[in-house]
Design a protein around this nucleic acid. Structure first.
Lengths: 350, 350
DNA sequence: AATACTATGTGTAACGTATTACCAGTTCAC
DNA sequence: GTGAACTGGTAATACGTTACACATAGTATT
C-alpha cells in the first residue's frame, strides 16, 4: 500500500511537492523534480487515496441514484444512461434499489449522506417525501426523476419528468378514438406519484369524452405485496386473466408500464385472444423491448436519453452553485408510439 | 454539519465517549451519560461520517459490482439480487456498467480501489484478466461471476459460474434430439469467457453426434460495434432475418442469451415463420421474461438467486479471512427448461 | 488502612491527504 | 548593495473518527 509519503521519500522531495504534482500544479517546481516524482509514482503504482482526499476537501464526485428496481428494463436502461452521463461529467454513480419502499429510501439516503454524497437522483418514489426531509435539511441535493413535484418543491433541487397526465390522456384518447368503450387498467400498487398521475390522466380523459371507467376493470396489483418489478410481467399476465374472464370483459387495456403490458400480451394469447383483433393493449414508457414484442407494443414514450442528460446536468449544476439554477422543474412531452397492439374493437364482441 | 465534537460538547462528555455510544459499547458508561449523548445525537441530527470512519479503520462495508450492462434484465436482476444479499450482510454495493470493455473495467477497478473498496464481483468480462493484474496485486479481492476461471485463478479469490459448456451441450442435445440437423447460432461479439464456452459447448456436442455446424449459420454480432445489451434484442432480430433468407436456412437457432432469443422470435414472426412449427429457438439464462414470451422460450437456466448468494458470501468471507476460504471455485449445474419455442423440424422444409 | 478491583470516563496519537504559512535561495531594479 | 519579487521547496495543521493507554472515584477485600 504505497502512500504519498512513500512516493515523496523515493523521489527525495516533500509530500507537498508530490501533492502538487498530482494536482497538476506543475508550474511550482523544476522539471527534473517533476520527472523524479512521476517516476516514483509509476514505479510504486501509487494511486491517491480518494477517501483521505475527500475527508480533507469535503468533496466527492459521486452521485446517488435511487430507483425502484434495476430489474425493470426501464430503470435498468435509465441507470445505464444516467451513469454514462455522470461519467462524462467526471462523476461516479452509486445505484440503489429501493423497491418503492419509503423506509428503504430513507435508509439509503442516510447512508449516502454519511458517505459524503451530496447529490441524489430519486427515481419514481412514493407521493410523500416526508421521509427525506431530514437529509434534505442537512444539505442533500435531491433531483426528482419521473415524478411530479406537487407540494414538495422545497425539498427538491430540480426535477425532470414527462407530463404523466397528458401521457395517460394520449393513451386514452388513442383507445377511445379507435372505438373502445370498455377500457381496463392494469397496474401494481398505486403508491408512486407517477402511477397516480397516470391513473388520473386516464380518468380525466375518459370522463371528458363520456366513456365510463368501470371499477371492475381496475386491476391494482392484487396480491402483489412485496413483489418487485421482475414480477411485473407476471402480474400483468394474472391481471389479464382475471379481467378477461369477467362477464363483461374489456376490449382494451391500458397498462401502467410496458412490463405489465408484456405480461398482458402473454396472458391474452394463452387464453386464446388475439391482440389486437380481440383485445387492444397499450403500455407506457417505450422500453426497448416494446418494439420486439409480438405484436409490437403501442405505448407512450418517455424521452429517456434526454431526460437523463438533463437530470444529471441540472443536479451537478445545483451542487456547484449551491442550489441556484435556472428552470429547475422540467416537464417534457411524452409521445404516443402507435405499433400493432392496438386496433378497433372486434365488432362480434363489441 | 454536526460532527462528533459537537455532540460531545453538547452532552458535556469527551469524543471518546460519544464514539463508544455510536459503536454500541454501552457497557462502558453510566446510564444517564448514555441518555445525554443519545439526546444530543438526535437533537443535532448527527450521522457519523463514514469517510472519516473508513480512513481510520481501513475498512469499508461496500462491494463493487462490475457488470456488462444493467439494461440487460439478466444483469439487472442479478444486480438486484446481489445487492439485496450484500445488504443482508451489512454491505453496500456500487454497481458499474463496463460494457465488456477491458479499459472501462480497469478504470472502474482503480477507482473502486482508491475509494477503499477491497472486494469486487466481476460479471462476465473478457477472457484475459491482464488488465486487472495491477489492482489484484495491490490486494483487491476479485470474485468472478458467470465466467470460467481457466488460467486466471491466481487473480481470483473465488468464482461462481454455471458449467457453460455443459449448458450449451444440453441445448444442442435438445435440438438434435428433436431431429434438427441445420442449427444456427446467434450471438453478439464473442469476447467474453462465457460466450466462448457456450459456442465451444455447442460445437463439441454437435461434433459428437455428427451434426455439421455450417459456418454460414454462425451469426456473431456483425455490425454490432459499440452496441450494448439494450440492443441485443434488435441484433437478434437482424440476425434471424439474415439467417432465414439464406438459400438453406436453419431449422433451429441457439441464441447466446435470452435477449437475442427474444429478438429472434420477433424477427422470425415478422418474416412469417411460426415458432416452433417452422423454426425452433432456444435461449440461455432463463431471464424472467422468457416465460412470458410468445411462445414461452425454451432456455438454459442459471440458478441466479443461489449463485448470487454464494458469490456474496464467498467474497465477504475472503475479505474477512484474507483470502483463505474453502472451495473457492464453484461450478453449478445449469438446467434445460423446455417451454414452447422448440419442436421437431417441419417435415415440409426439412 | 492499605490494596485491589470495578465502573466510568478522558486524552491523544494515528489514518492519508490538502492546505496554509513559511523559508531559503536567486534574480533584478534602483 | 539593498530590499522586493519570484522560485522551489518544507513543516505543521486540519479533516472526523477510532483505539488504546491512562485517570479518577467509589467499593469491596484483606
Amino acid at each position: 500500500m504505497a502512500g504519498i509519503k512513500d512516493v515523496a521519500k523515493m523521489a527525495g522531495v516533500s509530500v507537498s511537492t508530490v501533492s502538487n504534482v498530482i494536482n497538476g500544479r506543475h508550474g511550482k517546481m523544476g522539471h527534473d523534480t517533476l520527472c523524479r516524482v512521476q517516476d516514483a509514482i509509476s514505479t510504486l503504482k501509487y494511486v491517491p487515496n480518494a477517501v483521505a482526499r475527500q475527508l480533507q476537501s469535503g468533496q466527492i464526485r459521486t452521485l446517488g441514484l435511487i430507483v425502484p428496481s434495476v430489474a425493470n428494463p426501464f430503470w435498468g436502461n435509465a441507470s445505464q444512461v444516467i451513469e454514462k452521463e455522470a461519467k462524462a461529467h467526471g462523476y461516479q454513480v452509486l445505484i440503489c434499489n429501493a423497491e418503492r419502499d419509503p423506509d428503504t429510501e430513507a435508509a439509503y439516503l442516510e447512508s449516502l449522506y454519511s458517505s459524503g454524497i451530496r447529490g441524489v437522483i430519486l427515481g419514481s418514489s412514493p407521493v410523500s417525501l416526508d421521509h427525506l426531509q431530514k437529509q434534505a435539511e442537512k444539505g442533500m441535493r435531491i433531483a426528482a426523476f419521473d415524478r411530479n413535484t406537487q407540494g414538495i418543491q422545497q425539498l427538491l433541487s430540480c426535477s425532470i419528468s414527462i407530463d404523466q397526465i397528458s401521457g395517460a390522456r394520449m393513451a386514452a384518447r388513442h383507445l377511445v378514438g379507435l372505438g373502445h368503450k370498455r377500457i381496463g387498467f392494469i397496474s401494481g400498487p398505486i403508491g408512486t406519484s407517477s402511477r397516480i398521475a397516470r391513473l388520473d390522466g386516464l380518468r380525466a380523459e375518459l370522463a371528458k369524452v363520456g366513456v365510463e371507467l368501470d371499477d371492475e376493470l381496475l386491476w391494482l396489483g392484487r396480491n402483489a405485496s412485496g413483489f418487485g418489478d421482475s414480477q411485473a410481467a407476471e402480474l400483468g399476465r394474472s391481471a389479464i386473466r382475471e379481467l378477461m374472464t369477467l362477464n363483461n370483459p374489456p376490449t382494451a387495456v391500458f397498462c401502467i408500464n410496458d412490463m405489465y403490458a408484456i405480461g398482458a400480451l402473454s396472458g391474452a394469447r394463452e387464453l386464446g385472444y388475439r391482440v389486437p383483433e380481440d383485445l387492444s393493449v397499450i403500455g407506457f414508457d417505450d422500453i426497448y423491448l416494446a418494439k420486439v414484442m409480438s405484436p409490437p407494443l403501442t405505448t407512450i414514450q418517455q424521452p429517456l436519453e434526454q431526460m437523463s442528460k438533463l437530470v444529471v446536468a441540472k443536479l451537478i449544476e445545483a451542487l456547484r452553485t449551491d442550489g441556484a439554477i435556472d428552470d429547475p422543474y422540467i416537464e417534457m412531452r411524452p409521445e404516443l408510439i402507435v405499433r400493432s397492439s392496438t386496433a378497433a374493437p372486434n365488432p362480434r364482441k363489441a
